[in-house]
């Protein structure tokens, strides 16, 4: 940061130095006044160069959008959807016999439910409960499209 500022200041000082030299060497007359104006314009251009390049950078490559520098990660909608899914999973896990549950969103308003259950758990019960949990947390229109039940021994 300061290295950049230092380079900028060095350029400015060199230009001011040259301008003063020109001012000393130039013969008196109209030309001298115009030379002074030109040197002043050059100093102005060098001075605002960092500013204008910053503005150009923002406009060209990084259009400013509100809060673009705040949001990193899932959007608010995404966070809410994930939270709803976790709630539905937790509800399904309260069904007797269910060891673990994972809910994945499919396209449209349907979900896929994966459950790990103890042997001899009623598929119908799990399906009903999953449907109720999903429609309670994720909205009435959402339905369970697939139900996959595993009863792997997890020791």
């Amino acid at each position: 940061m300061w290295a950049m500022v230092g380079g900028w200041v060095r350029t400015l000082i060199v230009i001011v130095l040259i301008g003063n030299l020109v001012d000393i060497v130039m013969p008196k007359g109209d030309l001298r006044r115009y030379a002074g104006l030109v040197v002043g314009l050059v100093i102005l251009a060098v001075m605002i160069r960092p500013l204008s390049s910053a503005v150009g950078y923002v406009n060209r490559d990084h259009p400013v959008s509100a809060f673009s520098w705040v949001s990193r990660g899932p959007s608010l909608t995404g966070a809410i959807a994930s939270e709803e899914r976790h709630q539905a999973e937790a509800m399904v896990q309260t069904v007797p016999g269910v060891r673990a549950c994972a809910i994945r969103s499919l396209s449209g308003s349907s979900v896929r439910v994966l459950v790990n259950v103890a042997p001899r758990t009623s598929r119908k019960l799990v399906r009903t409960m999953a449907q109720q949990a999903v429609s309670l947390t994720m909205g009435r229109g959402v339905r369970v499209a697939q139900l996959q039940m595993l009863s792997a021994k997890t020791s």
Partner: peptide, 28 residues
């Protein structure tokens, strides 16, 4: 890293402005 370099630059620019009075950089 910030205050001392800023003061250093300010002093350098101010001295240069006194040295080269025709186009000075006092405001900088």
């Amino acid at each position: 890293n910030w205050v001392l370099p800023a003061m250093m630059l300010a002093t350098v620019v101010e001295l240069v402005s006194h040295w080269l009075p025709r186009f000075s950089l006092n405001s900088l």
